[in-house]
Design a protein around this nucleic acid. Sequence first.
DNA 1: GTGGTCTAGACCACA
DNA 2: GTGGTCTAGACCACG
Lengths: 136, 136, 136, 136
Amino acid sequence: MLIELNFKSGMPVYLQVVDQIRAAAASGQLRPGDPLSSIRPLAMQLRVNRNTIAKAYAELETQGVIETVAGKGCFIKNSASPFRKQVRNQMLMVEIDQAIVAAHHLGVKRGEFLGLVNERLDAFEERAAAAQAKEI
Amino acid sequence: MLIELNFKSGMPVYLQVVDQIRAAAASGQLRPGDPLSSIRPLAMQLRVNRNTIAKAYAELETQGVIETVAGKGCFIKNSASPFRKQVRNQMLMVEIDQAIVAAHHLGVKRGEFLGLVNERLDAFEERAAAAQAKEI
Amino acid sequence: MLIELNFKSGMPVYLQVVDQIRAAAASGQLRPGDPLSSIRPLAMQLRVNRNTIAKAYAELETQGVIETVAGKGCFIKNSASPFRKQVRNQMLMVEIDQAIVAAHHLGVKRGEFLGLVNERLDAFEERAAAAQAKEI
Amino acid sequence: MLIELNFKSGMPVYLQVVDQIRAAAASGQLRPGDPLSSIRPLAMQLRVNRNTIAKAYAELETQGVIETVAGKGCFIKNSASPFRKQVRNQMLMVEIDQAIVAAHHLGVKRGEFLGLVNERLDAFEERAAAAQAKEI
DNA sequence: GTGGTCTAGACCACA
DNA sequence: GTGGTCTAGACCACG
């Protein structure tokens, strides 16, 4: 489970964690029964206070996305309704549009923008691979 | 200029205003010289405090999106980003990364993601062209 | 860090704070990484509202002079102006013009003015060197 | 009498006018009995509301710097104490130091800075000459 | 403890 | 009427 935070967006960190885990669960990226990283290692990895992760997990539990078993950890619950492809794309398009608007304001043209997107995809995949290697 | 607020998202209200006006300016829905709603009426309409809108407009001014003239009002500026290319790309990468992370958690693969990006670029350019056509 | 306010000058208090901290950072009196006084104590010491200092610090952050970490504090940044050369010169010209206008009204001629500018540059560089020496 | 305004400094425009006229009077640039520009032309020249100039002149009168003769205009009063050279230079140094600090933050080096100063002096002298030509 | 956001309301500068 | 500044005080996010 790879989570990335943006400390400057104004969006609370714990909500960013909630959103990303919920999205992963809803899209089938995480399946019912899958264990989540425990609080302390995740907090260390994200360089965030433990309370922040605890709050995110608490929020996810009240939302019914995960379930915590004392002494064992947190697990994905049976998700009622994974997103349909159309819904997923709509959520994604919101994010993409924001990047496009920023590019326009910064005077970045389509070609340069697409170059940057590919560059960031490469960087992301590298990070993801590194994270997975560490887990194994 | 229609603005919609989501008071439950955790995203600061003033940033929601900033984003929506930036998007409108980027797409050509608002054009250089166009006046923005005045602070007080907009605050009343959105049922937020006057200072919240003032903060949003101040932020837009420092970003170089609008120009405010005390006693007269706020106007869309000729967009020319005052930042260096390096800084510009850094700002943009933050936005792009957010979209990539969302794609990852939604289980959208690289190819599909790039397809969506191109689709949204097309849509954006179409909206911008339509707005320009209206001007003529 | 000693800050002095003049409540009668008509210059906004938050801008006075900005100027004085900028000057301290520029002269080396405050060095990259140095923490600034926290908002609340500084506000109490200067007998102004907390929001006034917060606004000053926010302005300093957008100018790239300091960096604020929520929950930890504000710190002097490695100064690297994020602006384009053209914009930079424009900002600087405003400051220079103010000095020139003052010289004009005080009846100071070009030669004498340039002499003073060089004198102040020497003095500034000396202060900066002294501050750096202290560091070692 | 050449006056230059900075609409972005945060300092009230009418106070900028007051300061510049007071400096000119105190330095001997304007002598007792000299007439000031009347309100309307000055307001037009500075692209400012007439009320703003009227307020500046009123302030100058209460400060005892000028005297208004109904139907005739405003004139410099006998100034009690023109600034001594040392005092004058001190006032000027404050302005110069501000420009130097700004240059430092913007990463402008001494040579480039001095070049800009000379450039602005040229520009100023040109404006001053043009203004004088118009008056004649 | 830190900084950030928002509200409510006052006063100022300017057109 | 416009936007700008400041105050006072509340609550939130985070360490």
